[in-house]
Every structure is written in structure tokens, then in C-alpha cells.
Simulated assay, not measured.
Amino acid sequence: MLADASQNISSGQLTHGVELDSSITSVIEFIEVHFPQFREKVDGEVTASEKSLTDRLCKYFNRNAGNFPFYFHHENVEDYTTGKSPQVDIGTVSRSEQITIGDRSYNEWDSFFSMEAKRLPTPGQNREKEYVIGHDRPSGGMERFKKRIHGKDLKYAAIIGYIQEKDGNHWYLKINEWIDELILSTPDFWNMDDKLIEKENPSGNLRKFISKNFRTELNDENDFISLFHFWIELI
């Protein structure tokens, strides 16, 4: 089991209240340890691009994942049958040829836990809310998971946040404010479960949240994906 490799990692509290497969727990605990350490490498980079930060984050994760039965792949292709496939920023892939999580199986090419990265704030005109939703196309981090553009076969995924202005408290309130607006305007797709909930008090250089996100219906049944949110402040 992937969990066997994580027994030397401090157990985080982000998973409290969410029943997880041990393999997912292993990846979450890995991120909880190594993402704050990565911050020390990029501290002060308040104008660095999302692509630059995420490329280095993926390399840093892999450098520290040598003894773990999973690795990370930057710009992981979602659908190998088309040359126009979306790409998620970081995919988590098992080193074995197949892994089963809950009732779903993933082969040697599949990401079983995907991560999308966003800068806070997102620079550019009309991109302020892109952590949640895009302006004129589905480019929002949460939106892309909810619409199955990313992680259509996943039950768990994550959004990485690089805070380059303000602080975590500001963005926690602001993002939930944007979701409140969406609940009023599109209540058939956004609801209170989409809002971020902090799972433990702020500590160190990492802020951690969780949201349970309704997705488009699958086989006439409601479907949800649990998103784990990890933020570091680069200021």
C-alpha cells in the first residue's frame, strides 16, 4: 500500500471528517510536509508565473519522493485519445502498473490524485476570480474539477495556491465570498458545500482547507469531488 511509505511522515489533520483511502492519505501527508519546505526555495517570488512555480514544485516533489511508490508529473494529459486533451498542472502517478482506490482502478498512465495551481491574485484583466471560476471560459481552478475538465474519474484532488499579495485570511474570505455570489446566481451548480472550510488552525507556512464539490451529473446521479486546498505565502 502507498500508505506504508508514509509512516515516517507526521500525520496531518486536513483529512478529519473525510473518509479516505490510505493511498490518498499518503499523498496528502506528503504534500503537507514538502509544500511548506518548497516555500523556502521560492520565498519572495511575488511576480513569478504560475507555470514557473509549478514546474519547480513538481521537480521538488519528485526529488523528495524517491522512496515513495508514487511520483508527480507536470502538465499531466487527461485524455490520451485526443491531441486536444486538457492538462492538469500536476498529476500523481503510481509507480506500479495499476492501483485501485475505492471502487476505481487507475493504470500506469493515470493520475489518481491531480493538482491544479493558481496564483493569488491571478494576474490579468478579468481574471481576479480564477481560483474559483473563469471569466469567459471554464478556466477556474475549482470550476474545471466541477465540470469534469480535470479529474473526471477522481474522487479526490487538490488546488495549490501561491499567495503573492495580501495573506491567507484575505483570500479565504474573498474566495468564499465569490462562491456565495455563485450560489445566488447559479444555485443548480454551486452550493454551500463548495465553500472552503479550514480543517485546522493556521500553523507554520501552510494553510489548509477542504471543500466538497458537486459536479455535473454522472449516469443521472449526483457526483462529488473532495478538493483539498494547500496555500503558501510567498510575501
Rank of each mutant, 00 (worst) to 15 (best):
66 G>F: 02
9 I>M: 13
42 V>E: 09
40 E>D: 13
13 Q>A: 11
19 E>T: 13
96 S>T: 14
79 D>W: 15
74 H>K: 08
38 F>R: 05
105 S>E: 15
55 D>P: 00
26 S>P: 00
88 V>Y: 03
113 F>S: 01
29 E>F: 04
6 S>W: 02
4 D>T: 15
75 E>V: 09
34 H>M: 11
44 G>L: 08
10 S>G: 14
103 D>M: 00
72 F>C: 00
98 Q>M: 13
20 L>V: 08
80 Y>Q: 09
31 I>T: 02
107 N>H: 13
56 R>C: 06
3 A>G: 06
99 I>V: 15
91 G>I: 14
64 N>H: 14
24 I>N: 02
13 Q>S: 15
43 D>A: 01
100 T>D: 03
29 E>Y: 02
113 F>M: 13
69 P>S: 01
59 K>D: 12
35 F>A: 01
26 S>E: 02
59 K>Y: 01
71 Y>T: 07
103 D>L: 00
37 Q>W: 04
111 S>D: 08
14 L>M: 10
79 D>R: 15
88 V>W: 03
14 L>R: 06
12 G>H: 06
74 H>N: 08
95 R>H: 10
6 S>T: 09
115 M>F: 09
107 N>D: 15
89 D>S: 11
85 S>D: 03
78 E>K: 05
66 G>I: 09
82 T>A: 12
67 N>F: 08
39 R>P: 01
56 R>G: 06
104 R>C: 07
72 F>R: 00
6 S>N: 09
60 Y>L: 12
86 P>R: 08
42 V>F: 05
97 E>C: 05
99 I>D: 12
17 G>F: 11
100 T>A: 04
16 H>A: 13
46 V>G: 04
24 I>R: 03
47 T>E: 13
112 F>W: 10
40 E>M: 10
22 S>W: 00
82 T>P: 10
47 T>H: 12
86 P>D: 08
22 S>N: 03
101 I>R: 05
102 G>C: 05
17 G>E: 12
4 D>W: 15
106 Y>V: 04
20 L>T: 09
15 T>H: 04
94 S>R: 08
6 S>I: 06
